[in-house]
Write a protein that binds this DNA or RNA. Structure first.
Lengths: 255, 255
DNA sequence: TCTGCGTTATGACGTTACGTCAGGGTCAAG
DNA sequence: CTTGACCCTGACGTAACGTCATAACGCAGA
């Protein structure tokens, strides 16, 4: 039975933080004394520590509340698994920083050799930073295994490759649209051929890994919640229209 | 001559961000068109990239503005040095994450062996996280060399060592206070002996490294700006009173 | 018993770095 | 001459607390 300050000291947080967590319903003390004082127990400390760890991972208090609410039901068995998942998040972050460090190194040595104008120097570094930032928020969609798989295929993604893939998809969309316009049946031979070609392109990104595919689907399903600006206006135009997706799903016999 | 959206796209930021930076005076376009449109030049892009990089390092926009204002005067010569300093910040962060990862690992294997209550599991991890967080904001006081020196001496710091050092300092303060109470002259033999003992204790932390000592002094000099809560109430009591410092400085012939 | 200091509670405004409308001009194209 | 795509300037919203302000609680010493 600890009063708020004692408790705060144990967990290395401020009293105000505990007040805040109480107010937003993230962590309320198990009981109040007659005079209204918050009284915490060791049980609360364990919960608070879970919270603080998740906070360290960069998860918002809102999401932490959700995780803890739904996660509390789960059997304790996967505590190790959870820890492993969280470790993988940290590894991602560490590797991201490492890549930025390498970018700095490259820029630094490049600068020593030929005295380039310094502005192009930051260019590459910031590119790396931006990649890392966008990657950061996709973490919640991909499983650790999927992320690792993506990571392994990363070296394959250079600008020209990127350009070719974009062109391929453009052609793909055009062809499917054409099929729809011509009232081609999804289950026809042409429809099935298109679907096969589509899956082939998807495989180009997933590398045939089902975990990656699953993450990609989750990511797409939640596209309403994408932070605005993640998809540039021109990329927006390059996204498949829903009717194309419906056609392909039909051709695959999935709906 | 780019208009705001074009410019934003080049730097991978939103238009709103540029508006914000303009308003707070962090980055204003070199000129405005007759109709009031912001017009940016490549020169501005270079500046923005410097800003974004510093932002990535976790520096507040306010501090970035200060850095850029004072740093602009400096000769360009130390661009490489600046970059090196910034890289060292990132290395610190990466290593911090690494330590947390190791803590997770240790906790994880410990859990596999004997099924400890899981709450003690997070304890050690969070200790590591907290250390890393406090270390994070001391970065601005210590030079990269000093930080590295501290890092190297890190293994020496275990809890009992910590306890002994604290006790030593307590005794030190008491003895100096006693000397002051007895009206001992700072320049007397006793005063000089106390000062020598004091410096010896300081050396216990600095390891005799002048860079570390300098950082420590900066840190102490700016103690008015320490985020509240960094020093726990009891540690507060353990801090040397200003008169003690004055006595020692006098004994060292520094004032 | 009164006084004083430390602790606690609630309420409310401040902060950082923008996001997100709202209301209203600009400009080239159809 | 009206779109549609950009641009402007407010101005309020957000997240996770920090920082007072005000008031009651509690315990020790005079």
């Amino acid at each position: 039975m600890l009063r708020i300050q004692q408790f705060a000291k144990l967990a290395n947080v401020t009293v105000r933080t505990l007040h805040h967590y109480d107010r937003i319903g993230l962590l309320s003390p198990t009981l109040r004394s007659a005079n209204g004082y918050r009284l915490y127990r060791m049980e609360d400390l364990a919960q608070l520590e879970r919270i603080l760890f998740l906070r360290y991972l960069g998860i918002s208090l809102r999401e932490i509340a959700d995780l803890l609410a739904t996660g509390a039901q789960l059997p304790e068995q996967d505590l190790a698994a959870t820890l492993a998942r969280q470790a993988s998040v940290l590894r991602q972050r560490r590797d991201g920083i490492d890549r930025v460090l390498h970018a700095i190194d490259r820029a630094s040595t490049a600068m020593k050799k030929n005295d380039k104008p310094d502005w192009s120097l930051y260019q590459t570094i910031l590119e790396e930073i931006h990649m890392q930032e966008t990657q950061d928020w996709t973490q919640k969609y991909y499983s650790p295994e999927a992320q690792q798989a993506i990571e392994e295929r990363r070296p394959l993604w250079n600008p020209e490759m990127q350009a070719k893939v974009t062109a391929d998809w453009q052609q793909m969309y055009a062809d499917v649209q054409s099929a729809i316009d011509r009232n081609v049946e999804p289950v026809s031979d042409e429809g099935k051929a298109l679907a096969a070609r589509w899956m082939k392109l998807v495989e180009g990104f997933t590398g045939g890994n089902p975990a990656v595919l699953e993450g990609l689907n989750k990511l797409y399903a939640d596209r309403a919640n994408w932070p605005s600006g993640t998809v540039s206006p021109e990329a927006e135009k390059n996204m498949p229209k829903p009717e194309l997706m419906i056609f392909i799903r039909a051709a695959l016999g999935k709906a």
